[in-house]
Design a protein around this nucleic acid. Sequence first.
DNA 1: TATGAATGAGTATTCATTCAT
DNA 2: CATGAATGAATACTCATTCAT
Lengths: 223, 223, 223, 223
Amino acid sequence: MASTKLKTPRPSRWERRPEARPDELLDAALEVFAARGYRATRLDEVARAAGVTKGTIYHYFAGKEQLLLAAVRRRQQKKIAEIREALGDESDPVSVRIARLYHSVWERWTDPRARQVLRLMLSDVSIEAPEVFRTWMREGFVTNLRMLTSLIEQGKAQGDFRSDVDAEVAARLLQSAMVFQMLLHFEWGMNELAPISNNRLVEQGLDVFMRGLRYEHHRDTES
Amino acid sequence: MASTKLKTPRPSRWERRPEARPDELLDAALEVFAARGYRATRLDEVARAAGVTKGTIYHYFAGKEQLLLAAVRRRQQKKIAEIREALGDESDPVSVRIARLYHSVWERWTDPRARQVLRLMLSDVSIEAPEVFRTWMREGFVTNLRMLTSLIEQGKAQGDFRSDVDAEVAARLLQSAMVFQMLLHFEWGMNELAPISNNRLVEQGLDVFMRGLRYEHHRDTES
Amino acid sequence: MASTKLKTPRPSRWERRPEARPDELLDAALEVFAARGYRATRLDEVARAAGVTKGTIYHYFAGKEQLLLAAVRRRQQKKIAEIREALGDESDPVSVRIARLYHSVWERWTDPRARQVLRLMLSDVSIEAPEVFRTWMREGFVTNLRMLTSLIEQGKAQGDFRSDVDAEVAARLLQSAMVFQMLLHFEWGMNELAPISNNRLVEQGLDVFMRGLRYEHHRDTES
Amino acid sequence: MASTKLKTPRPSRWERRPEARPDELLDAALEVFAARGYRATRLDEVARAAGVTKGTIYHYFAGKEQLLLAAVRRRQQKKIAEIREALGDESDPVSVRIARLYHSVWERWTDPRARQVLRLMLSDVSIEAPEVFRTWMREGFVTNLRMLTSLIEQGKAQGDFRSDVDAEVAARLLQSAMVFQMLLHFEWGMNELAPISNNRLVEQGLDVFMRGLRYEHHRDTES
DNA sequence: TATGAATGAGTATTCATTCAT
DNA sequence: CATGAATGAATACTCATTCAT
């Protein structure tokens, strides 16, 4: 990168970087899409952000929608890997692994960029580019849901969770607890309208959810 | 952005009567907005649906965004009343009243129109007409949240729920469990990608949530 | 017309002429299309020529192609009427009526505008707007051909033309003799490449054609 | 217009070899141009059809227009030779030689490719690439016309045709009879709008034309 | 020679908004 | 009050052409 620039001290109008271009384009595109929304994003802006001209975008991608699709896919692959990693050691109790995942996700959402993509999808894209939306749902959202479901199933098998818990539904609940609260809180201004400390939202949310799953041996003494 | 464009309605020489004739306009508008999304809705379409011409819309409303704002507000007032009614007798146990509300809401969502407004807000509008979105959040969404919060507080006071439950957070969880699941399931195609029976989603969802709130006296025998 | 302008001495940005607009638009459009060709015609140019803005075009017509179609149709109706008129008295001998038509058409082609529409159709439009081309062929060109055919049939019935002449084919020959020669001569520069006097082209062309149709009683004496 | 853009080919340092490799390029180009029209033809398509890349085209030709020009010229040379050959033995009577030529041309037009080039020139090219059009007219069309003219002159000299026939005009008539009818019939859908058998069109067309030229000795007996 | 990445000028179409009537 | 004609700004996409490699 830096060395490339040393080679061409004056990046002339004509710069040729066939290898790097597509990925640079995708990064720039996702950045702009996330910030502005799908519809409001001008391809000119994306091009400028990537340091190329509009024509170059069409050299690599068939159009606005395809550009977004490629950008989203590229990102999803990274994310899925990150999530799996965040689950940690498989030998740990499931409730620990879930908590680990849960906290890791919330932590990642400290970065506005991470949230914006979620908002982008559920907001603009679901209407303006339904094809991209469906792909994102299928390849990312549903994948995550299945992962959560199987985690909860494991918890049941390990005796960690109630045997009568509906894992499918519980996983959905957890997912929405995370995604929707994050959006409401950070992106949709809920924290201004009905303030709540970030920490409380995260910790107590997990607590209520976990209590819904676990056996309650100690209630008598605690109450 | 868009909010900058909001025009302060000019008090014209002829007194506008936004309360009288325009009601049919608002109904038609919300119908079209909900079906098409905010951006994709053409004022021509709204006008045709209302049986007037585009110019007439501008008699009563300052623009597209103001039209939506008025339409949403009109609807919200009705909805809030409905919800209060759905809670039923105040002397009933809170868990019963919550369940009653919960089922009543889900039932109402049988009607696509009822869902679409929610989708409209969270999708298109949150980006394209943030002013409207914020108003809707403040006047509707947050109001509902407060209602749920106070219900749960009542439940704690009545000894129906754990004393250590965080009512604010639990209310958020319940709200997201309802809204987000509904959107995923009915509007965003989740049911096609990861099918689940409507009944199970509703019943088990409430079950997991309620267990997270309540004391668990009977676990010992069951386990 | 003129009175309208007197009423609005300063034609402001907003001029309202609902009645006249469409026809004015069509005239301006055909003018520009004929001069530039279909593809090369910019709707901006048409709008400027008609003294309106581009948007106004779309108020009345669905798009570029539809605009051309309407313009062509409008013109065709006039032309067909003119041609019928040029044929003159039905009681005259057919060879006289054909000659009258023939000369009248050539005379009309003195006006460049009259030729350009023909060139427009056969050139640009046949490829870029095939729908319009087909309509023009069907409603104009073929109609003219039929008229010529029936004229020649009448000539045969009247004993003016040989009984063994194929009227269908002869009509085609005459039509192409007129149209194609005109285009070659005036529009495609044939007169510069292989000059020939206009008069000779017209008169001798008719002569050769007519001799092909008629019985030849007087050849003996002439030869 | 477009002609202004014609670039004078730069004599580059490396000697271009427009005669050698480019021939396949020219064949591919004419094929695509004929099928799609000038404007609608993408140089990418031509390149693909020739099995090279777009850049290569610019090695050999200065641009789109020059490419077409070269392709048309190359073809014309072949065609002129073919036509001379089709005329056959010079000692045969002219009317026979004309008929031979006439039928040979029509037969060749059985092949769509042969017609398409004519259509290409008269349609698209005459507007979009007038430079090419003029060259084609001068080097091909006019040459053919002269050939026909001198044939008819010979016919007059041989006493085969009337002495008072205007050979220039008659040749034009014949040429248009052939070219224009062919285009109308095969390329512009006339046969669908006003059907006529191919054979009748060809034979009767020649008949009417020839009668216009010849002395009519036998009419009395035949009629 | 040949490639193909990069350019950038060019344009039909949409639609919220205005305003003469 | 109501109409609907007129506006004009805004934008994705195409493709001939250039040029570094």
